[in-house]
């Protein structure tokens, strides 16, 4: 049976962490609080080879090598709506929305032939997968591949920058390897979050000051919104600390 899929604009997937291409992260720095999110891809995973090309390879203390993806990310708690999501559940920036949103439900961090399960709506999502919806994936190939190809190309292009960043973090925060090892051992994987300030420093971005000026008020606002929820204590701590970092970076340049 050929999978069918149509978006019903239910807005359910417009919540929580949103991985971005570096280009999109920079373009939308005035609207998304940004962080770098690390995930581990084990060597027996289907997407391992691709992940080594999009990310980096790290040798763990147990001598196993894993691939590590580092995604510039709109850093939001799971149930927080995207700041661009309107009350009518439509996208407020539809014409300029990030590649990640355009490519949904496909995911170019995985091989094209390994996308079928992504067409099954997740719990609570209202995607149309009925006979009314168009066929979008046939013989393990995406039928309209424009957005997928564009996002994949952007990810491949930015890979050297992400590797520079990975090298920096592993040099100056070497204990992160232990966190990666834990993530590799955990059945559910896990995520590790690092700061935009470290990324801007490592990659010597000349627009660091402008980006920081855009981020500071966002981080401050998110710190306020998460202040009184114990379940969001980690988010709050990160937002509050990064607000300070972004303010300082914006002042200094």
């Amino acid at each position: 049976m050929e999978p069918r899929f149509a978006c019903t604009a239910c807005g359910k997937c417009c919540h929580g962490l949103l991985p971005l291409t570096l280009t999109d992260a920079v373009a939308h720095a005035i609207r998304f609080p940004l962080a770098l999110v690390w995930t581990v891809v084990r060597s027996n995973a289907k997407s391992y080879d691709l992940a080594t090309r999009l990310g980096t390879s790290v040798r763990l203390p147990n001598r196993k090598t894993v691939a590590v993806l580092i995604q510039p990310t709109a850093y939001l708690p799971n149930h927080f709506p995207c700041p661009a999501l309107q009350p009518d559940n439509l996208c407020g920036i539809h014409a300029d929305k990030p590649s990640r949103c355009r490519t949904m439900p496909f995911y170019p961090y995985r091989e094209e032939k390994d996308q079928a399960d992504l067409l099954v709506p997740r719990k609570g999502w209202e995607c149309d997968v009925s006979a009314e919806a168009p066929v979008v994936y046939r013989n393990h190939a995406i039928l309209n591949r424009t957005d997928f190809d564009r996002e994949r190309a952007d990810l491949l292009e930015q890979a050297p920058v992400m590797r520079t960043y990975a090298d920096y973090v592993l040099k100056y925060m070497p204990w992160i390897v232990n966190d990666l090892a834990k993530m590799a051992a955990a059945p559910a994987g896990g995520k590790l979050v690092t700061s935009l300030s470290s990324f801007l420093t490592a990659t010597r971005r000349t627009d660091a000051r402008e980006l920081a000026a855009a981020q500071a008020p966002l981080m401050q606002a998110m710190a306020e919104r998460t202040r009184n929820d114990p379940a969001l204590a980690d988010f709050h701590k990160n937002y509050a600390g990064w607000a300070k970092e972004m303010e300082r970076l914006a002042q200094r340049g």
Binding site: Y172, T201, R204, G241, K244, E245
Partner: peptide, 10 residues
Amino acid sequence: EDFNRAEAER
């Protein structure tokens, strides 16, 4: 150039 001054201040 690797010094993350903003983070160090924090």
